[in-house]
Amino acid sequence: MDGVTVLIVDDHAGFRDTARLLLEHGGWRVVGEAGDGPQALVAVRATRPDVVLLDVNLPGEDGFWVARHLAADPDPPAVVLTSSRDDAGYGQLATEAGARGFIAKADLSVPALAEMVAG
């Protein structure tokens, strides 16, 4: 799955850097970053990524809100929600919001993401 385009949405710049490193190391192409929900919607429509890695705990509107909006688009990207809180039962909420699923930040890897996007 080399060359998959991905947009990273997270309010922590440090984590965005790490995620970019991790994804690019795994052969994906990071086409943009966003720090909050509204920015994320604009960036997705501008860059048309294959995958959106979306943090749940954003300032203001949360990741589920962004996922629901993206799911309503005519040709939506595959959305995967992530959070460092891995015990909050986010998996079910993620699929309910139209995302492919939820991965804890500590478990983030290209193979795990690819499996979720493909599944």
């Binding site: 440090g14 991790l22 890897s109």
Partner: peptide, 21 residues
Amino acid sequence: LHDGAQQRLVSLALRLRMATG
């Protein structure tokens, strides 16, 4: 805690995993 230490430690864990590879 979540926004600070936890985020940094998670990033660190991911980078260590990359280094291991």
